[in-house]
Simulated scan of single mutants.
Amino acid sequence: MLIVPFVAVAVWLVLWRAKFSAIENVLGLMGLALIAFAVALWQARPGLGRPGPHPVARGEARAREPGRPTPTSPSRCSVPR
């Protein structure tokens, strides 16, 4: 939280010292980047409707070796069954 006053001073300086056209260009580019990110997310089809964690979080992305326990196998879980 110590950074908040420094960020506030920086924003104040930019708003009072920078030209309007420069601020407008920067904010326009940020908006364009946001739109590009939204389109990329839509095109990637992340499958947000499916329940459960991502396959990488479950450890399914790496190749399985015979006899190697999975991250969620009972031998590695700390919860007694």
Rank of each mutant, 00 (worst) to 15 (best):
V11F: 08
E65H: 10
L2E: 15
A61H: 10
S21A: 11
F20Y: 09
L27I: 12
S78E: 09
V56E: 09
I3P: 03
A36P: 02
H54K: 04
V56G: 06
G49L: 04
V14H: 06
E24W: 11
M30N: 05
A40S: 07
S78M: 04
E60A: 09
P46Q: 01
L29I: 13
G52V: 01
P55I: 01
P80W: 01
R45C: 00
L15W: 15
E24S: 10
N25Q: 09
L41C: 05
P71F: 00
P66R: 04
A36Y: 00
E65G: 05
V4M: 13
A63M: 08
A44D: 15
N25C: 05
P5T: 00
Q43G: 03
A57P: 04
H54M: 07
R62C: 05
T72F: 14
L27S: 14
W42R: 08
V56I: 05
G31I: 02
L32Q: 08
L27W: 10
A36G: 02
A63F: 11
Q43D: 04
P5H: 01
I35R: 06
P74A: 01
P53M: 03
P46G: 00
I23Y: 02
E24A: 13
L48G: 10
G47Y: 02
T70C: 03
R64T: 09
P51V: 00
L13P: 12
C77W: 06
K19F: 10
F6K: 06
T70F: 02
L32I: 06
P55F: 02
G31M: 01
P69G: 03
R81C: 15
L2Q: 15
L13W: 09
Q43T: 04
V79M: 07
E60D: 14
A18K: 13
M30T: 05
G67M: 04
V79W: 07
L29P: 11
S73P: 04
V39Y: 10
A38D: 11
L27Q: 13
P74E: 03
L32N: 05
P5M: 00
A8Q: 09
G49Y: 03
A22F: 13
A36T: 02
G59R: 03
L29K: 14
V26Q: 07
L32S: 08
S73K: 01
P80A: 01
A38S: 12
F6A: 14
H54N: 13
I35Y: 08
P53D: 03
G28V: 01
R64V: 09
P80G: 00
M1Q: 11
L48S: 12
P69A: 02
P51E: 03
A18L: 15
R17L: 15
T70P: 02
P80L: 00
R68M: 14
R50Q: 13
F6P: 10
H54P: 09
S75K: 04
E60V: 06
S21E: 14
L32V: 05
G52E: 01
A33G: 10
I23K: 06
G52L: 00
C77T: 15
P46N: 02
A40H: 01
L13F: 12
R17C: 15
A57H: 04
L13N: 11
